[in-house]
Amino acid sequence: MSPTKRTKIAVLGTGGGGRAHAAKLAELGHEVHVGTRDVDATLARTEPDMMGNVPYKEWLADHPGVTLLPFAEAAAAADRIVINGIDGHNAVAALTGIADALSGKVLVDYAVPYIYNPELEHPWPTPWGVMPKLDPCDSDSLGEQIQRALPGVRVVKSFVTQEQETVVDPKAVGGGDHTMFVAGEDADAKKAVTELLTAYGWSDVLDLGGIVSSRGMEMYAGMHSAIGFALGFGTPFGVKVVR
């Protein structure tokens, strides 16, 4: 994907990650359609979300190149690429509900299948409470679940090993000298995602193979958090595969 070629791209989700992608894609000259469950409800919110992001209506006013639509309409508007920023617990159900709009397209999934506030025998305390639990884990992954649920969609797991603000601006860390990963069953789909990452500024993209490698990327979330706690929460960092 050339950063100068204008295409229509959908971003599903209005959280901080979705906002980062939508803003960057608009900056690169793309026509961006953001999907949400309920447009009226999203625009009616007047308080910051749980992560402190300003109400979406305020954010949208500052980004005139972005349109807000229901999930299905946003996905249908995309030429080729749809970015999934729906929370992991609800992703399969939400995406299955718009399967027709996603058919034949490349779905970039960066969701982590977290269960929040889990009842655990040995909880991991964090600055905001107990560390969420991954479900599925080990023997399955959210990436695989999405691909099985949507056989007509070309799912690529990527972006998940990094904060999304850094995904869209890799040079903010170490001049961009760190590694991003892709995994999926369709080579052309992975190529399209790699081209998008290149437009974002990534120079080191490692293909991990089939969608089963989603397991490794999703399970890395715990290590990512541990590093973040050690550095100080909010400190940007990257991971480099040296070879």
Rank of each mutant, 00 (worst) to 15 (best):
E165R: 13
N90W: 12
H63K: 11
Y114M: 08
V112C: 11
N84K: 04
Y56N: 09
R243W: 11
E121Y: 07
P113F: 00
H33V: 11
G35Y: 00
G16M: 14
V241N: 09
K133W: 01
L25M: 01
I146H: 01
Y220W: 14
D100R: 15
G17E: 06
T166E: 13
D135K: 09
T235R: 12
G238K: 06
L68K: 07
R45M: 14
A44P: 07
N117S: 13
K171R: 12
P70A: 04
M180G: 03
H178I: 01
N84D: 14
P55D: 04
N84M: 07
E163N: 13
P136A: 03
V242S: 06
T194N: 07
W59R: 10
G234C: 11
G15H: 05
L107R: 02
V182D: 05
A101F: 09
A226H: 10
D177N: 07
Q147N: 08
G13T: 00
A44Q: 11
T161V: 12
M1Y: 07
A10I: 00
D169M: 09
V112M: 14
V108C: 15
I115S: 06
Y116C: 08
A77G: 06
D62V: 08
T198P: 08
V205W: 02
I9E: 07
R80V: 10
V241A: 13
G210T: 10
P123D: 03
K133P: 02
M223C: 11
A10T: 05
K5F: 11
M217Y: 00
V173C: 08
L196M: 15
E195C: 06
K240N: 07
I86K: 02
G222M: 12
M131A: 15
T96G: 13
P127Y: 15
M51D: 11
G238L: 11
G238R: 07
G13F: 00
P170H: 00
